[in-house]
Design a protein around this nucleic acid. Structure first.
Length: 551
DNA sequence: AATACGCACAACCGCATGTCG
DNA sequence: ACGACATGCGGTTGTGCGTAT
């Protein structure tokens, strides 16, 4: 931002002032108005800026097309508006982004996706173009380095922050909000959430045991789980954020104690975002809903913005059927994409096993399931929660991992990819929520080293064939770590699959490891071995989506 | 010193949306 | 309801600078 075209523009100034602007059709070319007037294009000169500023002072913003008429500027209204908004507008903040701003951008992008204008609304003095440029260069850098787009703690915060922010009002009108965000210096998870979760240590960290109640009714009644509804955010343990403290991203250690209820915040946003971002609260993440992209391909759904690309884990064998954009964080589904949900939505509650065993879900379950398309994101959440709940119930009814093994065997016998089905059990691959666990892994993998942006990926040096799950030390619970006991398989945890014996031995495990990336494994190993705080995080995790008010 | 490359930035373009007659 | 117009937004491209080779 420090760069200014004015210096070079000044050189052009004399020329532009002496020459008719209409003939400036140099390298930048020129446009023409209907009347035959050739509109100038390319860099703005100081003189033009002055003219535009003067015009705005006199006439105010707006009526950009009349600028050319009244001010003599040979610029189209669009160009004038852009110039004003990005450079001439008062209170514009110039210079590099501060760490706080960078952090906020990341947070906002995690929430909003490529909604630069909305993000800019949270960054006083910054323009959408600035933010966009910053982000684009940033993702290029990270993409090149094979790093996840978001710092792990951002993944953790994103949903929560989004929830919090909703109580502060709509984004569009949320000047107060972004001030709060900036001033509070607190993107941390409210401690109240963690405290709450301590009372529910057995609850699913990312598998919300939603009660069988209508989400829409919850919305309509304005009630819902309060502090415990932090579903996706809590999938990223705090330990990751601790690691993040070593990153160039500032670590926000303050506590958000605004007394707001995340669910209320969330729910208030749902209706607004359902259509534009069916991915939902965490849909801002450019996560691939399907960690392996298999669901996408198998159902012919293009998951634009698949982060597999960004992570360098993209498999050529899984090229989506459509055009793949290298970056579409907002992951907005097309109607076609959404329409698929109705066909792949597993039945609630008891349907998981059936769902897992069933070959193509398309022919399966749909009737009872409120599809995200039909009923909105929250219903999708509910659906997933129910699915997860079923999984958990199964795993608890039987011995810790037998149910999944059975499911896996069944699936294997049907020829369906175990990994796919297993992950589907945690979320529809195409569902906007399907990213819940796996995509978090791929996206929010903690990054060791001192720089998230610069540190090269470890995975690059690891041959895929060497990816063995047993090399990945499962996230350890501090209890049995100290006791040197074999940990029970807790399928409520994303790493449970890696810990399970079946996983070690299955071919799909290798596939999964390959698809998730070696960094997934190695970093989990790092987490397990590098810090015990990670293991503690699961125990202290907020009861994701657990509604204490609705046991 | 010359070149290639990456980065940051500015600006343009196309499309979507809103407003008004 | 419809079309024209204005505006906003996001994606993309062009350009200059700094740095590495």
């Amino acid at each position: 931002m420090s760069r200014s075209t004015n210096e070079s523009e000044d050189d052009m100034l004399s020329k532009d002032q002496s020459d008719s602007p209409s003939v400036d059709e140099g390298s930048s070319g020129g446009g023409s108005l209907g009347g035959g007037t050739v509109l100038k294009k390319g860099p703005w000169t100081s003189a033009e800026d002055a003219i535009l500023v003067d015009y705005v002072k006199k006439h105010g913003e707006g009526n950009w097309n009349s600028v050319q008429k009244h001010s003599g500027l040979f610029r189209c209204g669009k160009s004038c508006r852009l110039r004003w908004a990005n450079h001439l507008r008062p209170n514009l903040k110039k210079g590099a982004f501060t760490p706080d701003e960078e952090r906020l951008i990341i947070e906002l992008h995690a929430k909003l996706g490529n909604k630069w204008a909305r993000m800019a609304a949270h960054l006083p003095g910054r323009t959408d173009n600035e933010i966009k440029n910053y982000w684009n260069t940033r993702i290029k850098r990270r993409q090149r380095a094979g790093l996840p787009l978001y710092p792990p703690d951002v993944c953790l915060h994103a949903g929560n922050e989004g929830q919090q922010s909703q109580n502060l009002g709509d984004f569009s009108g949320g000047d107060s909000q972004h001030h709060d965000l900036l001033q509070s210096n607190s993107f941390d998870i409210p401690d109240v959430i963690f405290d709450n979760f301590k009372t529910n240590p057995g609850s699913l960290p990312y598998a919300p045991p939603f009660p069988d109640i209508s989400v829409s009714s919850m919305l309509s009644q304005g009630l819902g789980p309060t502090q415990n509804y932090s579903f996706m955010t809590s999938t990223i343990p705090r330990a990751k954020r601790l690691r993040e403290s070593e990153s160039p991203f500032p670590t926000y250690s303050g506590n958000v104690t605004n007394g707001l209820t995340p669910f209320n915040q969330f729910s208030s946003e749902i209706s607004e975002k359902i259509h534009q971002r069916p991915f939902g609260l965490c849909g801002g993440f450019p996560y691939d809903p399907d960690p392996m992209n298999k669901g996408s391909t198998s159902f012919g759904v293009v998951t634009a913005g698949s982060h597999a690309l960004l992570n360098g884990n993209f498999s050529a064998s899984k090229v989506p059927t459509g055009a793949v954009k290298t970056e579409l964080p907002s992951l907005q589904y097309t109607d076609n994409d959404l329409s698929m949900w109705a066909n792949i939505c597993p039945p609630p509650l008891e349907g998981v096993e059936t769902y897992i065993q069933s070959p193509p879900p398309t022919a399966q379950v749909q009737s009872d399931c409120p599809s995200p398309r039909n009923s909105g994101l929250l219903e999708a959440l509910l659906h997933e929660a129910q699915t997860l709940k079923s999984v958990k119930n199964q795993s608890s009814e039987k011995s810790s991992n037998s149910s999944v093994i059975n499911s896996a065997e069944v699936v294997d016998s049907t020829g369906q990819n175990l990994c796919e089905t297993e992950w589907e059990g945690y979320g529809d691959p195409i569902s906007p929520l399907g990213r819940s666990a796996a995509s978090v892994f791929s996206e929010c993998t903690p990054v060791s080293g001192s720089s998230l942006d610069e540190s090269p990926p470890d995975k690059a040096s690891l041959p895929e064939s060497n990816v063995k799950v047993e090399t990945v030390e499962p996230i350890l619970s501090s209890d049995w770590v100290e006791k040197d006991e074999s940990p029970p398989v807790d399928f409520s945890r994303p790493d449970a699959l890696l810990n399970a014996d079946w996983f070690d031995q299955s071919d799909c495990a290798k596939d999964l490891a390959t698809l998730l990336g070696d960094d997934f494994c190695s970093e989990y190993k790092q987490m397990a071995g590098g810090t015990s705080s990670w293991s503690c995080q699961w125990n202290n995790m907020p009861a994701v989506c657990q509604m204490s008010e609705h046991p």
